[in-house]
Design a protein around this nucleic acid. Structure first.
Lengths: 153, 153
DNA sequence: TGACTCATGTCAGTATTCTGACATACGCTT
DNA sequence: AAGCGTATGTCAGAATACTGACATGAGTCA
């Protein structure tokens, strides 16, 4: 197990563990969403729209951590299937605010319950204080990672 | 940038924050690896092999959180490019233990330095104790998420 | 021994996401 | 008014990862 010299010790790397946790969460979400015929990105888009009605394609993309092209493709599908509506043309600029249809809202309800159960399971065994601590740690990591990105651009 | 109206769980969801952190980490890694002509999966495979020489295709896949088919394709590329070697046939069973070539080891060195700098940046602003705490929290989440998966199978 | 289960390596096809490119629209500066 | 930089929506093609399927080898159990 222990290796000669250099390298990042994966067993002790917070970065690796972060990826592992994220992967486990995604897998668990996929499992509960599959019976509902919904993918994680699919769900993310709907949940975002439920909480922030009128979000544009680009804003949804940022919220779901995909490119705006990917989100656009997804939105077109969701629109065709009747879960989401967008005005035919922009009232101002090019921005097309998207909204859930009643059908979309209904479809989301079951998914939200399923996803919430996953999150509850994930946090089982952690106290409120531990959760709060983890929350702050993750926020710290995110802002530290982003600091330099913004300089670079 | 902050939300305008309706009550929002996303801003308080550890699951969402986990995804956000993981996404930020991946983006940061892609940025430093791109100049080296290396993708994150690419790097993960090499780093895994450096630390655990002789890992099989399937084991590498699990360690990099991709399917074994995906890892197989990657390994074939890395083999063709001379970074990795595998025996033509298995000594026992079907398992083909993979190893880094000197060229692969050399290529990995720069990448490791780059990735380490990202991890250091990510952890800047956190004390040792906080890092240890975060480590345990992530481990807890992972094991909680996996518990049920194993039952299901 | 033979049947069964499980894990592996790999080929093929599908799906998903990304990068590149373009036209447009807004805001700011000159 | 005109130019410039930035952001958006969208089309098209490329890259990447996935699911399905198959043959093979090891281990288990009767």
């Amino acid at each position: 197990m222990s290796q000669k010299g250099a390298g990042i010790d994966l067993d002790k790397s917070l970065g690796y563990l972060l990826k592992e946790a994220s992967s486990a969460l995604r897998t668990a979400m996929e499992e509960v969403l599959r019976p509902l015929g919904m993918s994680v990105t699919h769900y993310s888009c709907l949940e975002l729209l439920a909480q922030r009605p009128g979000l544009s394609n680009s804003e949804l993309a940022r919220g779901a951590f995909v490119t705006r092209q990917t989100m656009n493709t997804l939105l077109q599908t969701l629109e065709r299937e009747g879960y989401v509506t967008r005005p035919a043309e922009a009232a101002v600029g090019k921005v097309l605010p998207a909204r859930l249809t009643p059908s979309g809202r209904r479809s989301l309800e079951k998914a939200t319950v399923a996803v919430r159960s996953v999150e509850v399971r994930m946090l089982a065994g952690m106290t409120e204080a531990e959760q709060a601590h983890a929350f702050r740690s993750l926020q710290s990591m995110i802002s530290s990672l982003r600091e330099r990105d913004e300089d670079a651009s």
